[in-house]
Design a protein around this nucleic acid. Structure first.
Lengths: 222, 222
DNA sequence: AATACCAAAATCTTCAATATTTTCTGGTTT
DNA sequence: AAACCAGAAAATATTGAAGATTTTGGTATT
């Protein structure tokens, strides 16, 4: 099946995983909904085995829940989950940024500025047509935050950061759809962050980063 | 196949994963060695699919490397890997301990003391017959460190901590076999840690924890 | 209303076959 | 001798089908 190359997914499993991941992020597959292999096959194609593997993968990423002998379901998205993901992400990304500021040089600063530019633009556009631009917007965000930690010299931290970012995407989209996000504020906070990084002011940078991450969710009473 | 219940593994995949995980930890399957499905089946039993799934799982845990179209191999274990795992583990476990010290109460303290007792005993025994006792020793360690972060109120942090602990097990066993570990020193550092926790001295606790984690590897020049 | 039991549905596991990709091998050319 | 290309062999990836096991849901009984 699959003539390939659909996306840049090298294998069927990765392709399926990407589809499902996306639909979970967008809420097409809502939290706690069951993921019956047969139903999914009709929707996405692929064999039962490939699906099992893909879902196992997503389970390890945390956006799918696997219950032995009882199949898979979309991971729940409670307030506690939101708080956990967001708080931990702030901590880990902060740590990554701290380390990056030790190792990152001019070239890193350039990448950071470029990424900021892209996400600033996305901020300006996204409220105009949320459904169409949400993914693009969040990809720009992802790239920006990836650059932040890219020089931390810890592949495992980068992986954790990436995982938490994807896990939090569901929540971000939910807030975005309710128009609960104020792009202008994000842009401002982000500028404070970048300024602090360029000035090598670690404390201010970390502070701004935490703000940037928590802000969309009303700072979670922190 | 498998009459079950072998271990406490609920599924064949989990059972296989546990076997392979163990053999990787012990170095029976050395770093970078290829994991050919056919060979493994002869060794451990199970179907090809179950193995693919198990190896995918282990790849997500970081102790196996998956290369598209090129099969699986045991993850490499370079000095850089050791440093990364150890440093990040110290940070994350430290964070978890900090949070646990906020929420943990008398009952937690009790668990901590009990876990310390077990690992102290293991320390006293392990050098006598390393091959036979290594796993038991490290399980006591695992339990102790799990208790440390158990009250942090962040399931994701706990998961990361657990993952890093398993990833570092390979290195720990390697040092242990070379008799590079001095259990008496570990016991001392651990006591300092527990004392600090009971005294609710956050800074001293974190300091001792970092020491406890880094010590076996010569503190990695930190 | 609670329990016990049976049938249907779903998951888990394996076997077997095909397609695709990588790796190896040997001969050719430069 | 080194580089380079085919073609063969080996390994991985994917799918289909079928049996075993477990969970779920409904029905009858107490």
């Amino acid at each position: 099946m699959f003539g390939f190359k659909h996306d840049d997914a090298a294998t069927v499993v990765q392709f399926i995983a990407e589809q499902v991941r996306r639909d979970i992020s967008f809420g097409v597959l809502p939290p706690d909904s069951r993921l019956k292999i047969e139903d999914l096959r009709q929707r996405y194609g692929g064999s039962a085995h490939s699906f099992r593997e893909a879902l196992t993968l997503l389970a390890n990423e945390g956006i799918v829940e696997a219950n032995t002998q009882r199949g898979f379901r979309v991971a729940s998205a409670s307030q506690a989950d939101l708080e956990d993901v967001t708080r931990l992400r702030a901590e880990i990304e902060g740590l990554g940024l701290k380390w990056s500021m030790k190792h990152g040089a001019v070239r890193w600063e350039g990448e950071l500025i470029a990424a900021r530019h892209a996400v600033d633009r996305a901020d300006q556009m996204v409220m105009g047509d949320i459904d169409a631009l949400a993914l693009e917007w969040d990809e720009a965000n992802r790239e920006f935050h990836a650059v932040l930690v890219s020089r931390c010299n810890s592949p495992r931290l980068i992986e954790f950061q990436s995982r938490l970012f994807f896990e939090s995407r569901r929540f971000r989209f939910a807030v975005l759809k309710e128009r609960g996000i104020v792009p202008e504020e994000l842009t401002m906070t982000r500028n404070r962050l970048v300024d602090a990084v360029l000035a090598r002011n670690e404390q201010r940078a970390i502070e701004a980063l935490e703000r940037l991450i928590l802000e969309p969710f009303g700072n979670l009473g922190i």
